[in-house]
Design a protein around this nucleic acid. Structure first.
Lengths: 201, 201
DNA sequence: ATAGTTCTTGATCGTTCATTCAAAAACAGC
DNA sequence: GCTGTTTTTGAATGAACGATCAAGAACTAT
């Protein structure tokens, strides 16, 4: 009984994610978002409230995709260590493939947004907390398998791996070199198994 | 034979560093810088050209301090591994002490500035290249000492440590927890020596 | 067809941004 | 105590920003 909405909300959100991902929150202007989404300011504001609301929706949308990827990588029928290895190999190949070197939208946001912005930061903290927790579950399996004398708790190792994600993401901004990234991943995984496995040339 | 400059350039630069450090390049306005430095826009522009010029000077100034600290930490008469350990312990204590959790100015900038800004990014790359090189020299000593069977080249290990700096810096933005940071450092160093040393509670 | 409702449009608002510049102020040389 | 030179001042500039809103457009229900 009224004029129907013409745009696809998810489609618009995806395009907005692209803008924020590439330019950051402060760097993306409404003009950028209007051009990318094809919506006029009025429609954009009607749909998402304001720029910040759209940004929050973008963060959530990005994390949904990310969570799906993580779940796919970490819940296979392979051994725990191989699953984690697959996850980081995927991270490396994504980093190398990404020609604009946008990195991880969430990690970028982590450094852009001031810590006193609790609404955004607590959200990011919760998201990476979920990632950490996924690692923890897999690591518990790993330790339970007995092939690894547990020097440390799965909590500590999971935190270490999350730190590795951060580090790799930032590293790729300075040196997008695949062999360097692979070597770093190998050293990260070395902590989990006590010996180096991948041969490198 | 003219009116002398009233302000101390280094003092002004230090205050400007504080502003950029806390707010980022895009987030810091000229008004912020005018208020922090006590200089009027005209004087600021006469001294540094424009906002970007001041930012570049700020980056350089920050790195000078950082380089001094690194040199102090890595050139003592202790064993190589202890020196690197001291470096990361210092990084942890700095992270915990910093109540505003500003992190590392250079790492923050790395994520804020788009990669196609070559003037800034090549500068940052050179700076972290210097850090990597410092690590490499110390690691060569470590390997030459013979107490560590060199699974890997000092280049690869140095890169891994730089990645660790990035990771720790970002990690502290989400979880400023000293024991978590210490545990991460312990795992980073584990890669260098093949066994865990620090006891943890 | 008409009335009622919601969406789209894009010009417009007030702010804030980085930057400039003419005028005033502070020195050195003579 | 002038004169010449440079610095400081802070108001002014135009552009870009996020956000708004009245008018027109598109649809449904009756």
């Amino acid at each position: 009984m009224a004029r129907p909405i013409e745009f696809d909300r998810e489609d618009v959100l995806r395009k907005a994610i692209g803008v924020f991902w590439q330019k950051g929150y402060g760097g993306a202007s409404i003009k950028d978002l209007v051009e990318a989404t094809g919506l006029q300011p009025g429609s954009l504001y009607a749909a998402f409230g304001d720029k910040r609301g759209l940004f929050l929706a973008a963060i959530d949308g990005y994390f949904e995709d990310m969570k799906g990827m993580i779940f796919t990588m970490l819940h296979t029928d392979q051994t725990p260590i191989v699953r984690i290895e697959a996850f980081f190999n995927r991270l490396v190949s994504d980093s190398v493939t990404d020609e604009h070197r946008k990195g991880c939208f969430l990690v970028n946001t982590l450094l852009e947004i001031p810590i006193h912005d609790l609404e955004i930061n607590s959200r990011l903290q919760a998201m990476f907390g979920e990632v950490e927790n996924e690692f923890k579950c897999v690591l518990k399996e790993h330790i339970a398998s007995g092939e690894f004398d547990s020097r440390q708790s799965p909590e500590e190792l999971a935190r270490f791996l999350v730190m590795g994600i951060y580090g790799l993401r930032v590293f790729n901004k300075t040196q997008p070199d695949i062999s360097a990234l692979k070597s770093i991943v190998d050293n990260l995984l070395f902590v989990l198994r006590g010996k180096s496995c991948n041969e490198r040339t």
